[in-house]
Write a protein that binds this DNA or RNA. Structure first.
Lengths: 343, 343
DNA sequence: ACGGGGCAATGAAACGTTTCATATCGTCAA
DNA sequence: TTGACGATATGAAACGTTTCATTGCCCCGT
């Protein structure tokens, strides 16, 4: 156990505690000879700063936390990467917390983060709406930036992607491909993104098509398979000819299940996913998907957070909304006639 | 800023500081009436424990850290999940650090973790071998458990999967399918797992086949695509008929590139991956892969760590090695004749 | 009536920093 | 020669806990 304290360094170097601290924090205030003597002592003793003590004195830590719904989800992996880049640049540290879509875990994490007096938190809450725990957190003074959530909260920043637009893009594309019976797969509907993507799709369809909703308990491959089973078992003339999924994981599940049931994609069922994760292009049938600027989301969120942390007084809360982009691949375009237009 | 301290709670409740602390830590020592009064004060003031102060006093934190090569890699995501489960059960907290295969980042993380006096660290170091920074870390007394690394380190615990066996299983399977020219794709070769998987494959092949190594700079889909391009461009009679990849990400990249170049999998080229990530089964051609008990790896690593933390004196370092398992899917079995044997 | 024992609550010390007001000393200008 | 100033170094206070030795009190047995 590294139990060497600044005190022993001071004794070893024959200076006072304050001087050692100065060497550590404002080296230019210390005479070169003394400074070197202290540095040597530090090296010799293997001294390591005690961050608890430092923070206790400082009143605040240097870390920012990001609480994600699922570390395993590539979407969040990219958001995290973006956040790390930005934080690193500002000399901060990022800790990643995984709520696993579980309210209780999220709650536990927030408790701990608050006890740790983190600088601020980037979070995608498990449930949207006025989460009392999060409100409390904010009201006690820890800056929070909502990631991919955040309709109408005016006392905090948020970054998001226009999910309604994303849904609209997907549905418009399917409509254009001639589909009239379309299924929307995803859930729980209480998640704003899911609701928005659905709303966008419904809006794009208008009276030109029929949108059948299959709600899933979560956005996973397994959930997608299950939902696909449900759809596949409908009588052929009622069965949707296209499926728009709230998520690529779900879409991959749907694709997998459809293939397994000998329904061809896209000929029997077209599929459009959401997120354009790395695997979308590598799927059994390359997956059309709505792409979000994931890393950018993390970067911007971190910038907003750091701005709030530093500019206490002047800071104005902002809501940054990015535009998604539809990436068309084989899963939603007729297989036979080779498409001539390039990538 | 939650600047309420135990002192104000004490004043508000009309008791001493010590009593408040007792309510927090040993509630049974406090008379029910007093306890309630204190709890009310805590609620009314929105008091939140200051973890820095607590740790400063305790000398140690309750968190354990896990340093992974890439949060985006589903392999690590599962290891993390396993670690979290186990830690949670023991009342601990897990923070996830992402080294991104970058020595400098890993170094930075270790610095910070040491300053934070974490209980211990689970780590897959960027480079194997006697990393001086990690040695130093350990020698100063922070317990470390190596994850998926750790040949012959006797002064620390490790968990790993027998990668030589994994390589052997994969190659033996391909041999059995009639392949004689096989490629091994992965890298950098300095990573022990990569080297072991290669060694296992080479051993299984012996003189019965030819193993061509295509080294990649990293274990990513992109690297796989690039390597596959190299392989695909070989004259047909030199070209390997099967590819064994050090990693599923690489394998998916290979699959993608081969498909794009109109080489059929498995007919023209068979593929076996490694890790059996969730997407392996959902790939364009369901991917044969070597499965590792990922979550178990995380759980066991955490157990070993906690054992070392708690049983300071008695603790004996252990090296737990798990056995991988080959999961055969379509990417390595002749497509036409339907296989009759079940899952 | 007195002492002992148990339960509750208290107060002070200690954890390792950082910061800030102060002390020391040599030097330079007047 | 003196006074002041700049450059260094010092010591003590403060951050918010936890812990532990003490105190205060009440009740019970003798």
């Amino acid at each position: 156990m590294s139990t060497t304290s600044i005190k022993e360094v001071a004794r070893h170097a024959g200076v006072s505690i304050g001087t050692v601290s100065n060497v550590l924090n404002r080296p230019d205030l210390v005479a070169p000879a003394t400074r070197q003597r202290v540095l040597d002592a530090i090296g010799a003793l293997g001294y390591v700063r005690n961050d608890s003590a430092r923070q206790l004195r400082a009143g605040r830590s240097r870390t920012i936390a990001i609480v994600v719904l699922d570390v395993a989800n590539p979407f969040f992996a990219d958001v995290v990467r973006g956040a790390e880049m930005e934080a690193e640049q500002a000399g901060g540290v990022v800790v990643v917390c995984n709520s696993g879509e579980d309210r209780a875990r999220e709650h536990r994490h927030l408790d701990i983060l608050e006890e740790q007096r983190v600088q601020g938190v980037l979070i995608t809450p498990v449930d949207d709406g006025p989460d009392s725990r999060l409100e409390q957190f904010i009201s006690r003074g820890t800056p929070v930036v909502l990631v991919d959530r955040g309709s109408g909260h005016h006392h905090r920043c948020s970054v998001a992607v226009d999910d309604v637009l994303g849904g609209r893009l997907a549905a418009a594309h399917l409509l254009e491909q001639g589909h009239r019976r379309i299924a929307f797969v995803g859930g729980p509907a209480s998640i704003r993104q899911v609701a928005d993507r659905h709303a966008g799709a419904a809006a794009a369809l208008g009276t030109n098509g029929e949108l059948r909703v299959v709600e899933t308990p979560s956005l996973t491959v397994a959930a997608g398979r299950h939902a696909a089973g449900e759809i596949a078992e409908l009588p052929a003339r009622q069965r949707p000819t296209a499926v728009f999924c709230a998520n690529d994981l779900v879409a991959l599940g749907v694709l997998q299940e459809m293939t397994q049931r000998d329904l061809r994609v896209p000929d029997d069922v077209a599929i459009v996913g959401y997120d354009d994760i790395e695997f979308a292009a590598a799927a059994a049938v390359p997956l059309s998907s709505v792409r979000q600027p994931r890393e950018q989301l993390g970067r911007t969120a971190t910038q907003l957070l750091l701005d709030e942390v530093n500019d206490q007084g002047r800071h104005r809360h902002r809501h940054v909304v990015f535009q998604p982009e539809l990436v068309v691949r084989a899963s939603s375009t007729p297989a036979r006639p080779p498409v001539s237009k390039g990538a």
